[in-house]
Design a protein around this nucleic acid. Sequence first.
DNA 1: TCACGGAATATTTTT
DNA 2: TATTCCGTGA
Length: 656
Amino acid sequence: MQKKSSPFNSDRRFRIQYEKHLNLSQLQAVKSTEGPLLVIAGAGSGKTRTLTYRVAHLVENGVSPASILLLTFTRKASQQMLLRATKLLDRRCEKVAGGTFHSFGNIILRKYASAMGFEPGFAILDRVDSEALIGILRKDLGAVAKQRSFPRKHTLANIFSRAVNKMISIEDVVYDNYPHLEPDLEAIIDIHQCYRSYKREHHFLDFDDLLVYLQQLLKLYPDIRNRISSSYRYIMVDEYQDTNKIQADILYNLTGANENIMVVGDDSQSIYAFRGANFRNIMQFPKMFPGTRIISLEENYRSVQPILDLTNKIIEQAKEKYSKTLFTRITGGSTPQLIDAVDENGQSQFVVSKIQQLCRQGIALDKIAVLFRAGYHSFDLEIELNREQIPFVKVGGFKFVESAHIKDVMAHLRVISNPNDRISWYRILLLIEKIGPVSAQRVYESVQQKASGYIGLASVKLKSGAARGLEKLKKLFLTPGLHQLSLAKLGEAVIKYYLPILKAKYDDHPKRAKDLEQLLAIMERYSDLSLFLTDMALEPPNTSIGDTFATDSRADNRLTLSTIHSAKGLEWHTVFIIWALDGRFPSAHALSKEEDLEEELRLMYVAATRARENLIFTYPIQVYDRMLGMVLDRPSRFIDMIPQSILEQQSAQYLI
DNA sequence: TCACGGAATATTTTT
DNA sequence: TATTCCGTGA
């Protein structure tokens, strides 16, 4: 044990040997607990480690855990950090308040709901729900919407969300990003108004509202703001490069007079502009909090030198960045490769055979990942992996809770929880034979008039054909003591009712029925229905449909398939980046706008910096894109002209 | 009023 | 390619 004259380890109070486990910059970041602090953390520089030790240090120093707030990008991230801190120190760390901005907003808003004029029991709309609502309002507006090809609900939802997160008007969003929709601007603004008032009247909050209303609460009620800010004396924010203006504003108002706020991030890894994130946020932090101390973490502990050589080459193409030089002391490693394949399936076959080869060399499957730009890019590969019986998990893309059959079951539960939920009523009614939008509306209105909750369904009358279908739903809702059942029993009842519908609706119903069993397993962990519904909206299982919770015995040794966005913060021994084809990555849609192209570049940087030892890019050599009406045949421009000494180019056909 | 089939349309990433 | 939209026939 070295005994240096650090103010740290000479202090007997500290059990953890910070000096031994952290480098100098990391140690400084952990030590600087008072006042505003900005940590610029390059890829693989031990950012999570630093945050974890900082939490432990604060607690060990006698700070009450409940007065520490750790805001992260996903709830999983904060859970893992607190778990690690707990292992490092003790169980006090479990009491630290942690979560996403959205989940934090949820907690605070439920507490102070009355001040904002809505019920504490408000329901949260996830993306599918808001789109459904927008779809209904879009139809209501009929006359205007019918004329031309009016934007779809999905597009409308994107426009609304973008406006909120960038804190600009609908008008500006349309002018900037959807110029072709200008003729419909008035109707779009109209629908947006309806959407907003509908949500307010029915006590619905969508994801964006959780931020907006939190911001308003802090701004409009100084006494409440003071109460909240004084209860969180130390605030830490991870992934600050991916926060947007609202979030920065919330932080500003949340920080008490002591200004004990620390943010960590890397401007080169900002990849969420589509939801309003602005990588310049991170450099504006010192302006927001004058006197900010800035610490850079530049030593990379993840990748071998040849990989860093390449990733440095990638990021140096960025027009606008705040430069920092990453270095590593990890020696050895092989040169990253760029492999061309004849077509998509050739690409898949190459990846599969390379993975098999790596396995023979003793690399475990869970140390390998295949990354891609968009969820559907892996479809062909998934087929090949199944054929070769290579187990994998897929992260990102379509989610478990967003799949139609899960949403169907959830809608029944939501009606039971909140009989005023028009969106869910519509959803469950339309599942019934002979009931279309008109009958659904009639039933809904009738139930509302009875004002006796979902039980009011009993006295609803319809024409014979539709009435017969409705009988079964009536029977379900009139089960004696339905709302007193445990959540698991309630789920069982709903699923039992739903199974025949599932069988009629989908030809792949056995697979989907398994998902429902998994849903039931999740429900068993909850005792409160509305808490369950909130959690499913806010923190859904991140894995995709299908093999989500596969109870395979090899479950912990599986290959990872992931979108690059979902791979943020993770690392693997070997990383494949497929579809490194110009026109796909960067996406052809990003080519016309400088800032979009820059974001694609950062995305490529994030992908490449996930690798520890092996990094392999692949692309199909000739792909005809019907939308573009052209052939794509060049590798991604981000890695195209890099010399062989840094990126080795080969053809898959000579390697398989 | 509903269901069905053909036509049109579209990016992608997530809380 | 897949979803969503719109018109038509029952």
